[in-house]
Design a protein around this nucleic acid. Structure first.
Lengths: 332, 332
DNA sequence: ATAAATTGTGGGAACGTTCCCTTAGAATAT
DNA sequence: ATATTCTAAGGGAACGTTCCCACAATTTAT
């Protein structure tokens, strides 16, 4: 009645449980005859090894844990495609748990992954406390995405936001724009790499005095109010760099209301390349962080760390790309 | 050096391992004194029970597995919100694995969940073979979303697509539309509940001869070509019911190209209420399946089946709602 | 006062694997 | 022909829990 065990397989194949175990683990020191007999018995009995028992003694589960803040985040979804890409070839399976957007349950989820004895953790999230991460990293290899915690033996993979912003500004400058304003996060009007990239590139091209940053949040409403505020004070403005796509969509809304034609009266660029931006009647010029590549890179780094847990922490920077669509054009 | 075990805790608390185990399992037959001593020792040693050992002997992991086809599907994301909502209160943790849109890896993922000894499975997916599902259901309680496999002891939760389509048609009829066409999936021009609901409601209101269904797929392009085809053959058309939001977005594109004003020249309704439909300058009238409620329901049903595995299979139908936005208006 | 039930505790087996150690027999070297 | 190495295989301990059973100490019933 209950599930067959390695002993049942051994009995049926006429060998010892040790031999069955060796076949299961692909050990080289087993004769073809036994190997075949064991495979046959496994098939006959529909045997599947008990992972709990296996994990208990071998101290590895073959699973890598992925901790995400929120399944709705498209960035995470692409990251997971990348993780799948790499793990698909090998012996590890990604299992995903959600932090439900709350720090406490995020730490609970992290705890859960440790309990499951995952062989490594990829953390696609911002909020757990530093010490919770550190405690986890002492137990299991870990790599963190989108930020660099500066913890010993913890690798990180981050997007080059500075370069991404530079791509945006360069694109607009090449089209002939000079009056380029940025809508940034409410919290951060300076200091983030995305903002630094904008400022630096403007400065290098001699438009330091045209630098103009307004808060707008990472929301549709934020972009909407942000651009209205900008246009009130600066009639020369020909291009807007919104801190993310959602905000850029708000800018597009405002433009319609104000009777401005995008891209002829106003060029708009976003950041993230979310699904809505790809729709034909939005068709937003934006930056793609290539989250899939981030996921692939993170997985590779994690697998390396599983092999060699004591090597120095790595920080890998990935390169975003500009996606030129129809919301940017040279100014009139 | 290595992680503390129940024996270390027992030694430190001055009790037997059995008592520690009882405390861990919240057994009533343990004195307050021992309970406190054990809790203290656990805290001192930062002990966390080994799930593999626990699972091995108790045959339950405290995890419920969620199998999804694809993380990009927004329906799944809402379902997972619902699952989180219910499991958050109790002793189970959802862990998610992806089928990567391929039947073979989907069965692999299912297999993986069985290996992990999850206490139950929620299947948000369409493709695994019937026999793979059945085999899994013999081992672990299972509930299937969005379709009804008619397997013994397998519960299902499905949306009432017939009623959803009825809501759409009724809404359009109430606005005064009579010439309402539908863009359906390429594969299915009849037979699905969504189509039946459209046909039935048209018939009941005396517009049987106005029923018109065209293939268009569940894609943006499908909606685009579908509506162009419809308008060529039928100049009276005042309303389009697209089989999903993506397709409806294609309809909106085509309308712009054809110089039609939505909603004054043409009303458009979608199905699914995806994120893009909520954006201000799309603002699509659509049906919300309330996937979160589906997730909640599925979880409740699964927990009940874990309690009582032999009860008859249930089929639960959830009720969608109409979201009225600005792509529908009475015809001129 | 004695018998019976109850309560809290400890010891040991079991769960299903992996891994180490031993050994029989074959192959190779002396 | 004998000694040595190699190969394939088996036996048993270990992993860290839970759970069953036994038992002592206490409480309750007779």
């Amino acid at each position: 009645m209950s599930a067959p065990t390695i002993l049942d397989v051994a009995a049926r194949a006429g060998v010892s449980k040790s031999s069955v175990s060796r076949v299961l683990l692909d050990s080289p020191s087993v004769s073809d005859a036994t190997r075949q007999a064991v495979h046959q018995a496994i098939a006959d009995l529909d045997f599947r090894p008990n992972l709990a028992a296996r994990t208990l003694v071998s101290r590895r589960s073959g699973a890598i844990g992925v901790l995400v803040t929120d399944f709705h985040n498209p960035f995470f979804q692409d990251v997971l495609d990348g993780i799948d890409e790499i793990t698909g070839l090998g012996k590890y399976t990604p299992i995903v748990v959600s932090g439900k957007r709350m720090q406490k349950s995020e730490e609970g989820a992290l705890h859960r992954l440790l309990e499951l004895q995952v062989d490594g953790i990829i953390c696609v999230t911002a909020t757990p406390q530093q010490h919770a991460l550190q405690a986890a990293a002492r137990i299991t290899p870990m790599v963190i995405l989108t930020r660099t915690p500066e913890l010993p033996y913890v690798d990180s993979v981050v997007n080059d936001d500075f370069y991404g912003a530079r791509l945006v500004v360069q694109h607009l400058l090449e089209l002939g724009h000079q009056h380029i304003a940025m809508i940034a996060d409410d919290q951060e009007l300076a200091g983030t790499d995305r903002i630094k990239g904008y400022q630096q590139t403007m400065k290098e091209n001699g438009f330091e005095q045209n630098i103009q940053i307004t808060p707008g949040g990472f929301t549709e409403t934020g972009g909407y109010t942000g651009v209205k505020r900008l246009l009130q004070t600066n009639a020369n403005l020909t291009a807007i760099f919104a801190a993310n796509d959602l905000s850029a969509l708000g800018v597009l809304n405002a433009a319609v209301e104000l009777g401005l034609d995008v891209p002829n009266d106003l060029s708009v660029v976003g950041y993230d390349n979310i699904f809505a931006s790809t729709l034909k009647h939005i068709n937003l010029t934006t930056i793609d962080q290539r989250a899939k590549i981030i996921g692939e890179t993170a997985t590779k780094v994690l697998l390396e760390r599983i092999e060699n847990p004591r090597r120095a922490a790595q920080r890998i920077v990935t390169t975003p790309v500009l996606i030129t669509r129809s919301t940017t054009r040279r100014p009139r």
